[in-house]
């Protein structure tokens, strides 16, 4: 498992986020196997907008960041594990 995941090069925050994410949407895969650049929605990980809502609520609980407004940004923020992690790291309170 770890040999595969090493190629994906997740940062520590991405690794943590991937674990929360797979749990939130009950994704049947090893969080370390998520390619940080892969689109979350549709073709990539195959998530739908209900999953995106689950992730937004998870991010709110885990990181204290509200993600329901700013409609135009959401598609960029939720594009991939990496873009979401980037958003969290720059918007984390404290």
């Amino acid at each position: 498992m770890t040999t595969v995941s090493a190629s994906h090069d997740q940062t520590p925050l991405e690794r943590e986020l991937a674990a929360h994410l797979t749990e939130a949407v009950q994704l049947d895969m090893d969080p370390l196997d998520i390619d940080p650049e892969m689109p979350l929605f549709g073709e990539g990980l195959g998530l739908d907008s209900i999953d995106v809502l689950e992730i937004a609520l998870m991010v709110n609980t885990q990181y204290g960041i509200k993600l329901e407004s700013h409609d135009d940004d959401n598609r960029k923020i939720f594009h991939s594990l990496r873009s979401l992690a980037h958003h969290i790291s720059t918007h984390r309170p404290g």
Binding site: L40, F41, G42, S49, I50, V52, L53, A56, L67, E68, S69, D71, N74, R75, F78
Partner: peptide
């Protein structure tokens, strides 16, 4: 759409 449910939540 990716953000359909976020817009709905809002």
């Amino acid at each position: 759409q990716p953000d359909s449910m976020l817009a709905t939540l809002k």
